[in-house]
Amino acid sequence: MEKVQVFAPASVANVGPGYDTFGFAIERLGDIITLTKRNDSKLNILKSEGADLPTNPEKNVATVAIKALLDSLESEQGFDVHIKKLFKPGSGLGSSASSASGAVYAANKLLGEPYRDEELLEFALEGEALASGMIHADNVAPSLLGGFQAVRSYEPLELFRIPTPEDLRVLIIFPDVEVKTSEAKGLVPKELSVKDAREQWGNVGALIHAMHAEDYKLMRHAITDRIAEPVRKKLIPHYGQVKQYALDHGAVGFNISGSGPSMFALFRSADAAKACMTEVEKIYQKADLRVLLNLSRINPNGCQVI
């Protein structure tokens, strides 16, 4: 193969109580990464679509991730890299993770698959670290591997997959404002009270059980966050109003997606989610603010050749 095109899905991180620990992939939104082999060792970034991304290979998460992969193999292979964004960076949907994951997945394919998909995670994390200033796998893992992923440990890196109900639907609500990951992380408290920590741990366990048992009542209570939501919700226009409406009209969970401003609402049926979409649109129309809405399942697939 001389050329490959890969879809790398967007993802929802934290999922309420799982700060830097939980994340799941979604459908339709993501990156389309096209990689073409070169006859030299250069990593060349072509003009991107959908966003104005850095063309310096040392400042683009995709090429930083590819470089980490090439260095591990002591390879001098060069690539032309084209990135098409199907959603805006700064959305809270793991933009940098999609680029990094899709890039290493594509490079691995063109190099003859020297690594298993799970082994590509450490290289994708190098790209993610460039964007956020630290290594965290809650977006990278679901984008690369699909499904609902949980990070048990960072040293050593260890993941496990949480099963999710077949009928669960995810509504993404993305008001057209930008929240930078670094800024949002700066708002998060450095210390927690024992009371808040205890509640957070309880909700982590409850959410895992609720997904296994398809216990939607427990799920609704478990998707509660004592760490990031209280400080980050101030950055999201009409957050409280939208959350209350969704929970009053069938949502079995609602919270901020990653750093925001995107929000996610979980529903037991597509019909309930569609009814909510109509009203949410009205809320933002009255505020003269554009909103992107995306309804999907939790995507069981990570990066895939298309």
Rank of each mutant, 00 (worst) to 15 (best):
M1D: 00
E2D: 14
Q5P: 00
V6G: 00
A8C: 05
A8Y: 01
D20T: 06
D20H: 03
T21C: 15
G23H: 08
F24H: 04
F24D: 03
L29N: 02
G30V: 07
D31P: 00
I32M: 04
L35N: 01
L35P: 01
T36L: 02
K37E: 01
N39C: 03
S41E: 13
S41M: 02
L43H: 01
L43P: 03
P57C: 07
E58A: 14
N60V: 07
A62D: 07
A65Y: 05
I66A: 04
I66C: 05
K67L: 10
A68I: 05
E74W: 04
E74S: 14
D80T: 07
H82K: 15
K84M: 06
K85D: 04
K85Q: 05
L86K: 12
F87D: 02
F87H: 07
P89V: 12
L93S: 04
A97C: 07
S101Q: 02
Y105N: 03
A107Q: 03
K109W: 07
L111Y: 04
L111G: 05
G112N: 11
E113W: 01
R116E: 15
E118N: 08
L120T: 10
L121V: 09
E122N: 06
G127D: 04
E128V: 11
E128T: 11
A131R: 06
G133H: 11
H136F: 11
D138V: 11
V140Q: 05
V140E: 01
A141V: 08
G146R: 03
G147Q: 01
F148W: 08
Q149F: 00
V151A: 09
F160K: 11
F160W: 14
P163H: 13
P165H: 11
E166H: 14
V170Y: 09
V170D: 04
V170Q: 10
L171T: 02
E178G: 02
V179I: 15
T181P: 02
E183R: 09
K185Q: 15
K185I: 05
E191K: 13
V194A: 10
V194T: 03
V194M: 14
V194R: 14
G202E: 08
N203Q: 06
N203K: 12
V204Y: 00
V204R: 01
A210Y: 02
A210C: 07
M211L: 14
H212M: 12
D215S: 05
H221E: 14
T224Q: 13
D225T: 09
E229N: 07
E229K: 08
P230E: 11
K233R: 15
K234I: 05
K234S: 10
L235W: 08
I236N: 03
Y239E: 05
G240P: 00
G240H: 10
Q241C: 00
Q244Y: 07
Q244L: 09
D248H: 10
N255K: 06
I256H: 08
I256V: 13
S257I: 11
A265N: 06
F267M: 11
F267P: 04
R268H: 04
S269Y: 13
A270D: 13
D271A: 14
A272E: 15
A273T: 09
A273H: 05
M277G: 02
T278N: 12
E279N: 15
V280A: 10
V280M: 12
Y284A: 10
Y284Q: 11
Q285W: 09
V291R: 08
L292S: 11
L292Q: 13
N294L: 12
L295F: 14
S296K: 12
I298K: 09
I298C: 12
V305R: 10
